[in-house]
Design a protein around this nucleic acid. Structure first.
Lengths: 259, 259
DNA sequence: CCAAAAGTGTTCGGCCTACACCCATGC
DNA sequence: GCATGGGTGTAGGCCGAACACTTTTGG
């Protein structure tokens, strides 16, 4: 940008695309070898060369006149009809090797979470299909490593309760939330301590209602409280001519998308 | 990327650029109001419209056939002649508002650290000048917010000793390292506890030599040990046809650049 | 001997971990 | 009542914050 340096400017700007890694909790009944829930993600089948017929991350082009987040959101919508509850920039990939002989390609990759409600239909639908993250098919381009990176990053992000609550419904029991954490980290977590830690965070609000399951004691139903200190957060000094207040949560841009 | 969605493809790909936020410890003698060291960064004066004459982040174009890191490294080299010890992708900015009426512009922003040795000449040199981060001039585009974001992110990255050691020389005393931490966080840090924590990390190696300053007790000189577990790190599953082993440290791509 | 910075010891409290233990419910 | 998860209590350990203290040097 900016100051151009004269020497060796090899024209031919690479094209830019957007890809999205979307995660959701697996369907009811699904569970990993250790019995806890698993994460799933949707892939789309490519209808062009290269890698025609292979599975790939949903994505699309940059929409001129829209922010990157909006472009990601719309790319997701038009390929999978999903509307994530959380969307955040992950990383930009641009190594020449990744295009496998095609034109050079820069991909801005977003990371998204959708709630249970959005995943009613885990069955294959046109060219979209959901896969458990520990059992993915062969993928086009370098999408496999992108997913691995996204999963790795996810684990550190889930320290914050608000992220985890994006994967369950609006309301949930502590057991359900606990399940999400175990699914993401892949590790068993002491339920008793988990409960205390979550409640101590001050972000959970008891709805007063109970969920009865089977013949055991009913569980209290909680809701995430979006008020109070939004935790570690970076706020841009009031960007000019930009509608929504733009904040960077933790170490990347988080956005609750428009309708 | 990938699956194209037919509707509304408005050609005109925005152009891509690379910008770099480089940080270094201020020159000897420089100190903030509270007496501790400050961080400085180099800016370049724009020689074209828009914002001609304003200060801006160093940057350049994508080099076709090179990775993004290499492009960032070379952009930095050609504008400032600096060779960072640490380089990591920060964020990609692409909001339409940021180009201020010009053509839409996507900037992949990198974050870099240079050691003391590189900053011998803090004086203005051609079109490059160093500024303390708490006293920046007006900047072109949205570079001010980019810098603010970079600084904010820096603070969380400095938990790891290896990052901090990139700002001091190869060898350093614990006081010097302590100084870096205070400069980055902007907060006073108990020296006694700091010492213990650093030594406990197992990454510091005593050179056996001492540094004599003034009439006080000489300080032990340490060196960072690059062996052992490289801490939290993500390793790509051995990318095909890609020379150097590519690892993602913490939550972004770190790279020690080639010569 | 004194000032100044290096380096050590010690206490305290919070938080995380592990695990034992009660509680409410349906069958 | 008894199996099943929901929920609480509690003891121990680890780690960071705070701060008093000793050590080594130059003048």
């Amino acid at each position: 940008m900016g100051i151009g340096n004269v020497s060796e400017r090899r024209l031919a700007q690479p094209s830019i695309g957007i890809s999205v890694v979307i995660l959701a909790l697996g369907p009811h009944g699904d569970s990993a070898a250790n019995g806890s829930s698993r994460l799933w993600l949707p892939l789309v089948r490519r209808v062009r060369q290269p890698f025609m017929g292979s599975w790939a991350l949903p994505g699309g082009d940059l929409r001129v006149g829209h922010s990157l987040e909006e472009s990601a959101f719309k790319a997701l919508e038009s390929t999978t009809e999903l509307h994530p509850k959380y969307l955040e920039q992950l990383y930009t990939f641009g190594d020449p090797s990744r295009s496998s002989g095609g034109l050079p390609m820069v991909s801005i990759v977003y990371w998204a979470l959708v709630g249970e409600a959005e995943t009613k239909d885990f069955a294959e639908k046109d060219n979209v299909k959901w896969f458990p993250v520990d059992d993915l098919p062969d993928l086009a381009f370098d999408h496999r490593r992108i997913i691995d990176y996204a999963l790795w990053r996810s684990r550190s992000k889930f320290e914050y309760p608000d992220i985890a609550t994006k994967l369950v419904g609006e309301e949930f029991t502590l057991s359900q939330l606990h399940d999400v954490y175990e699914a993401v980290t892949g590790q068993p977590i002491d339920l008793a301590n988990f409960r205390r830690k979550m409640l101590a965070s001050g972000h959970l609000e008891d709805t007063g209602r109970k969920l009865h399951v089977g013949r055991s004691r009913p569980a209290a139903i909680y809701r995430y409280r979006h008020d109070g200190e939004p935790r570690a957060e970076f706020t841009f000094p009031t960007t000019v001519e930009h509608g929504k207040p733009e904040t960077l949560a933790d170490d990347a841009l988080s956005a609750l998308m428009p309708s």
